[in-house]
Design a protein around this nucleic acid. Structure first.
Length: 116
RNA sequence: CCAGAGUAUUGGCUAAUCGCGUGCAUUUCGGUGUACGAGGAAAGUCCGGGCAGCAAAGGGAAAUGGCAGUCGCUAACGGCGACCGGGGGCGACCCUAGGGAAAGUGCCACAGAAACGAAACUACCGCUUCGGCGGCAAAGGUGAAACGAGCGCCCCGGCUUGCCGGGGUUGGGAGUUCGGCGCGAAGGCGCCAACUUCCAAAGGUAAGAGCUCGCAACGUCGCGCGGUGACGCGCGAAGUAGGUAAACCCUGCCUGCUGCAAGGAGAUGGAUUCUUCGGCCCUAAAGGCUAAAGCAUCCCGCUGAGAAUUCAUCACAAAAACCGCUCGAGCCUGUCGGCAACGGCAGGCCUAGAUAGAUGAUUAGCUUCAACAGAACCCGGCUUACAGAUACUCUGGCACU
RNA sequence: UGGGGAUUCGCCAAGUGGUAAGGCACUGGUUUCUGGUACCAGCAUUCGGGGGUUCGAAUCCCUCAUCCCCAG
């Protein structure tokens, strides 16, 4: 889990990102990104719908693993909003190296630089 | 050892690093330190409560919905325990929506003569004007069901050789009797029983056997004994017969509606008034005991805390933030009572509380790479999912001693 | 979180205790030189799964699964 200041709070801010954002698509997960005004902290969210898996345990595992991959590899340079949307339940069992590579690719497409 | 029955426990662990949530402490307000951090089902939302709001003066009735052996347990329950009745298993044990069908109504297709209130298709016996009429109700046939059931006995079939399955043990006519009972004055007549014989019928390849015994069951009424009771054991009287209430219904008991997204509350600071609050005994009050938020020997008083009213500043937007929100019919250990469910007492413990929603990642080790699965107001149950491991008790069989 | 509904042949569906109607599609046949049309015939092993009540269950009861809808 990432730090509280880098999470979303409230419903309107998420809807705002959905309205005015660009998208990048990977295999299993895609990302929508939009710039924020200067001085605000960068934020990220992970969305796993019930269609991906009916089990709450599986959905939680996917969400936590992606949050962890983002936390390790993301060094936000400029204020930005990121929303990761999962559409493949296989991510719960994907090896950690592949999952991190996937997230790194998406961060790169969104114009973010990895920490390594 | 093999095959089973029941109950209970467990549900990956250890170390290191990075990271997250909450409480507490500290702070130079950036943070730092420390403690704790999903389940037995957190699930389904099927029942019962707490709590909250609305309604209702209080009480009762009806409707609606639910429940259904008895006694208990429980805050309560449709839950649990023990027992009773019924069914299954060689047994340990398991299953059981288990009130009422002699209150009423409905339904019981097809088949069948007939489906519940009496009747008679075939057959049998008698009579006959040969059209039929009367008697009998064993048997055949139809069907899930058409007056049953139990013990004994007989026959057939099967095998594991003493068990299982199927069927029978009957009806009618005539005759006989130092036989019994009833009617009649009597000759005699009627009924019953036994025997002989004829007809019919079942079963079986065929033959043989084809008989004997006691009555039981059920509801009603009246009793005796045992049990808190359901009920069990036994006796007597006069009697009786289909099923279905997870069909309507009847009887007894329970039942207001909505649900934490309930609901509450602007925040901070000041002023005025009131209260001085704990624990135990006690229905409560009074009173008593322990003893007392701080200062003060005591009173007055001051501070603190709580409630109400009021003033100022800020805010007036939101699915934001706050309260409700986790100490509770709580958990653990011991002991006592009880067959048990459970209850009493003593000691100890604090064990998630988020709000886009906290448990993840990496490395190393453990012979085994670990099932079902993620709290959202909280409890008691039920139901459903669950890899594997462990403990205890018991049953049947085999072998050995 | 709470509440409501549905599931019958490949598709649409009737049936509410007594042999699972019907239409489309499909298969075979007849008619035609061929195709279509028309006509005839066929097509439900288990009525979502499991258990129970009943002589008998798609229907009644319990339980599970899947799908859809509604409130905030």
């Amino acid at each position: 889990m990432i730090n509280r200041v880098h999470r979303f709070h409230g419903y309107g801010s998420l809807a705002r990102v959905y309205r005015r954002s660009s998208a990048a698509r990977g295999s299993g997960v895609s990302v929508r990104f939009a710039a924020r005004s200067a001085g605000q902290p960068a934020r990220a969210a992970v969305v796993v719908s019930k269609k991906v898996s009916k089990s709450a345990v599986t959905r939680n595992r996917i969400r936590r693993r992606i949050y962890e991959a983002v936390r390790v590899q993301w060094q936000p340079a400029a204020p930005v909003d990121l929303i990761f949307t999962v559409f493949d339940g296989q991510l719960a069992e994907l090896p950690t190296g592949q999952l991190h590579q996937e997230v790194a690719n998406l961060l790169q497409k969104a114009g973010q630089t990895g920490i390594e």
